[in-house]
């Protein structure tokens, strides 16, 4: 039984990270019908900025946290203004390739700024792991779970209680109708980019202490996040969270009860099965525009 708990904790930690990355994918998709393949790079940049500001430059952690998230958010805005709004003919597939290009570009920039070697960061707090039922839960995992929970609740509050949030939901449902009602849809798109990039940055910040941070780390995290967003139902924020945790736990259980070498295969097989049985994901996503 302690093994089961340990797998669960591992799955929850990874799942929380996937969930927050997936949330970034999902909310951007809801607002703009776009999948940003550079999302993983925002995660990487968030992590590397935190490493620079906190352990290296010695800023206090909360300040470094906020600055790293803000910086990635601003990067999201710059990205939208320079590379997305300028597109003459915004076909989804064209935009996808632009985001792929942007991902490579950002990776290249990060390699120049931070070099090729990996960097580590200490955990947010120096507490010993909690022992629950013979398994160990890391303090950092608790941090990750709490931060993700708070973020999800904040997003929920934003969508359901604020005017801007409601305006953004309106854009997600029907852009033209929203525009006719006087909602500045372009501003909403910009905001969606900023928030989605900031969510990516936050994912980077919270995992910086548990992984090794280097310019190549974003690609696979972005892919897993995309996978989680799909699993839960693209464009559905709660779906992203459910999908993230489902993917994380499935991976950990696959290691424990199937085979660690088949871990990723099991995760993707699960994804395929869900796509086949319920093509819009666990919670059902927004109707998908065609390419």
């Amino acid at each position: 039984m302690p093994e089961f708990y340990q797998y669960l904790f591992s799955g929850l930690t990874n799942g929380a990270i996937y969930a927050i990355i997936a949330l970034g994918f999902s909310m951007l998709f809801a607002a703009t019908d776009l999948i940003n393949f550079a999302q993983g790079e925002f995660v990487m940049i968030g992590a590397l900025i935190l490493v620079t500001l906190w352990p290296v430059m010695g800023l206090p952690l909360p300040l470094a946290f906020v600055l790293a998230v803000l910086a990635t958010g601003i990067l999201g805005i710059v990205f939208e203004r320079l590379a997305i709004r300028t597109v003459k003919k915004p076909d989804p597939i064209v935009l996808v390739i632009i985001t792929v290009g942007a991902g490579i570009f950002l990776r290249g920039v990060a390699m120049i700024i931070w070099g090729k070697t990996a960097k580590g960061a200490p955990p947010f707090s120096k507490m010993p792991p909690l022992e629950i039922g013979g398994a160990y839960l890391l303090a950092q995992s608790v941090w990750i779970l709490c931060i993700v929970l708070v973020t999800v609740l904040a997003m929920h509050f934003f969508y359901s209680r604020t005017l801007t949030g409601k305006a953004m939901s309106a854009c997600a449902i029907n852009k033209r109708a929203a525009s006719l009602l006087g909602i500045a849809t372009q501003k909403m798109t910009l905001l969606a980019f900023a928030v989605s990039a900031a969510l990516g940055g936050m994912a980077g910040v919270i995992i910086a202490p548990i992984t090794m941070n280097e310019y190549e780390m974003g690609a696979i995290l972005g892919l897993k996040g995309f996978c989680a967003a799909m699993l839960g139902g693209l464009g559905n924020s709660w779906g992203a969270v459910v999908g993230g945790f489902a993917l994380g736990i499935a991976e950990a259980m696959a290691v424990g009860y199937v085979s660690s070498s088949m871990k990723d295969a099991v995760a993707f097989l699960l994804l395929l099965l869900i796509l086949y049985v319920r093509p819009t994901g666990i919670l059902g996503g927004k109707a998908i525009a065609r390419f």
Partner: peptide, 11 residues
């Protein structure tokens, strides 16, 4: 700078 240029060209 190869990666940067490659990404830029793609975009």
């Amino acid at each position: 700078y190869e990666m940067i240029v490659y990404g830029l060209i793609l975009m």
